[in-house]
């Protein structure tokens, strides 16, 4: 079970309190009726599904109820950062999103990102 840091409650809480919300930073088109089928497919269905760092939404459904974003390594399941909705993607210096061998993120990333999140 994951231990997830909610940037609004400023606490590590058990995964049971959270609902996964899919990929983060996907912008919903404001002119939905006008976009082409290809653009809709891209927005609605196609995903990178990365083996490495993923940026994803979580909702603290049994806590504050708010959505927030997180960066997580999908190989080790380790969180690299949690940040509030609307904030830009955090800089994960040294982390290579394409790296399949990223079993353990380098220590300094952990300190800087988790440090600022707290």
């Amino acid at each position: 079970m994951l231990l997830i840091y909610c940037p609004y409650c400023e606490e590590d809480r058990s995964e049971l309190e959270f609902r996964h919300g899919g990929d983060a930073h996907i912008v919903r088109p404001t002119n939905m009726a006008d976009i082409s089928d290809e653009e809709f497919e891209e927005f609605f269905f196609l995903r990178d599904n990365p083996k490495g760092v993923i940026y994803e939404r979580w909702r603290h459904i049994h806590g504050c109820g708010r959505f927030f974003n997180a960066a997580r390594d999908t190989v080790s399941d380790r969180f690299l950062a949690s940040y509030k909705t609307g904030e830009p993607k955090p800089a994960l210096s040294g982390a290579s999103p394409a790296s399949a061998q990223l079993a353990e993120p380098p220590a300094q990333i952990d300190e800087t990102t988790e440090g600022t999140a707290k």
Binding site: M1, L2, E15, H20, R72, V75
Partner: peptide
């Protein structure tokens, strides 16, 4: 599990 992962491992719950 509810989240994307390549870990070949899931939560005990």
């Amino acid at each position: 599990d509810q989240y994307n992962s390549y870990s070949q491992n899931g939560g005990l719950q």
